[in-house]
Amino acid sequence: MRRIIISGGPGGGKSSLLEALREAGFPCIQEVSRELIRGQVAANSQCVPWKNLACFAKSCLDKMIADYHVASDRSLTFFDRGIPDIIAYLRFGGISVDDDFMVMAKKYRYDSNVVIAPPWADIYVNDSERWQTFSEAQALYSEIKNVYDELGYQMIELPLAPVEQRVAFTLTKLERIEYK
């Protein structure tokens, strides 16, 4: 089983790619943070990233570990972000990363190849769960790449192209990479 992370800064087209992969029949695990934000906002909780990033990160970690275990037995399962993304968000937010996050990032290893969506100004939009400016999204993208690199992952950068081309690019690249 290969657990493939699709990562990148906010607004790079990850969710569109995941949706297209899902429509093509691949099992996909949705982004944890959007689901958690909606629930926390509805509950009028303080455990949202713009009020208490540490609390929010812990909630994300717990959910990502649970999602890791429900990955399909099929050959590929795609994840909209992985545990290393939490570490990048914490660092970007200036919050020290508890050892627990690094331990879990090393324990719950995904496929060694991470598909990463670069910042793309033409498609970037703010919404109720994406509050960062485009320049913040670019800086966060850099931090995400740094964390994945630090943890020994190889990045496959997506082209700035329509989603259909991104799907073909992703599947072609993954077919050519020997399973590790």
Rank of each mutant, 00 (worst) to 15 (best):
A71P: 06
A42H: 09
C47F: 07
Y108P: 10
K145F: 08
Q154Y: 11
L90G: 04
I83T: 04
E129H: 13
I123M: 06
R22I: 03
E19S: 14
G82E: 07
I29H: 05
V163H: 00
T133D: 10
R2Y: 10
R130L: 02
P49N: 11
D149A: 10
G11M: 01
E23I: 04
A139S: 10
C60G: 12
V41Q: 06
E157R: 05
L174Y: 03
A42I: 03
L17M: 04
F79C: 11
Q132T: 10
N44Q: 13
D127G: 08
R81L: 08
S7T: 11
P27W: 02
T172Y: 09
R109T: 02
R176K: 15
A54V: 03
R166M: 05
Y89E: 09
I5H: 04
Q132S: 14
P84H: 02
N52M: 07
K145R: 14
W50H: 09
K14G: 04
F101S: 04
Q40M: 11
E175L: 05
Y110C: 10
C60K: 04
D73M: 07
Q46G: 12
L151K: 03
N44C: 12
C28E: 00
R109W: 01
V70R: 15
S135T: 15
D111M: 05
C55R: 01
P162L: 07
V163C: 00
S15V: 02
S59M: 14
D73H: 08
T77I: 06
K180T: 14
L18E: 03
A54E: 14
L36P: 05
Y148H: 15
I95W: 06
